[in-house]
Design a protein around this nucleic acid. Structure first.
Length: 221
DNA sequence: TTCCAGGTTA
DNA sequence: TAACCTGGAA
């Protein structure tokens, strides 16, 4: 287990880097749970540049949970055309209907409730909880799993309930204030997408290389 | 031209 | 654990 001082240095450096280099994505300018939800659905299996071509247009067509819930399945599928994985479009519409019907039109904030909605797995549940509601949870997608694995040597597990070792690390890593937690999670995403990439990680330009377990590992610069 | 990445579901 | 899709890397 890494020393807590190391974990805190990692956090501080990552947040500082994020303030300067974080991507100004449209779904980061809002806390509207519906808009966050749409973004997270589109971002499942799909890279940011392509989602950018669809996100605003989709929201113009379906500006609210209610409009989406009332839409015909065919038109939603059309709005999704080109994004692939069309089950996501079907699930998103069903999810909107479910929330209107069973949750008083309010997107739940609790990951354990979110995960029961169609198309919402452990990742999306945590993403909505933290990116819309600033909850102190970590949305472990493959990027974040890879970053934590490389930096701290924890397993790459992607289950809803993290194994104890990972849970303790994450607890030490997450700030106690919601806004900073939000920023740290976004920062971890950007680090995984821009620096700590699956292939050819850019270790030389990594803001947390000094706090990383793998500094100097062969094949990673 | 083949290979890889990427959440959720069945 | 395979299937779902597509763009981009190798």
């Amino acid at each position: 287990m890494p020393a807590q001082a190391n974990v805190l240095a990692f956090r501080r450096r990552l947040l500082r880097w994020f303030r300067r280099h974080g991507r100004p994505l449209p779904w980061r300018a809002t806390r509207d749970p519906y808009r966050v939800l749409v973004a997270e659905f589109m971002l499942q299996q799909t890279q940011v540049p392509r989602v950018l071509q669809y996100y605003e247009r989709f929201l113009r067509q379906y500006p609210s949970l209610e409009t989406l819930a009332r839409a015909a399945p065919g038109t939603v599928r059309e709005a999704w055309d080109g994004l692939g994985y069309y089950a996501r479009a079907r699930n998103l519409r069903r999810l909107a209907q479910g929330i209107v019907k069973h949750h008083d039109g309010q997107v739940p904030a609790d990951p354990d409730v979110l995960v029961r909605l169609p198309g919402v797995g452990p990742y999306t549940a945590a993403a909505v909880a933290t990116f819309a509601y600033e909850h102190r949870v970590i949305p472990v997608d493959t990027n974040i799993a890879r970053v934590l694995h490389r930096a701290f040597g924890v397993s790459r597990t992607r289950t809803r309930h993290l194994p104890g070792r990972v849970a303790r690390l994450v607890d030490g890593l997450l700030p106690h204030d919601g806004k900073t937690t939000w920023a740290l999670n976004q920062a971890l995403m950007d680090l995984g997408a821009m620096v700590c990439t699956a292939r050819k990680p850019r270790c030389r330009e990594c803001p947390v290389r000094n706090a990383c377990m793998r500094k100097g590992v062969r094949g990673e610069e």
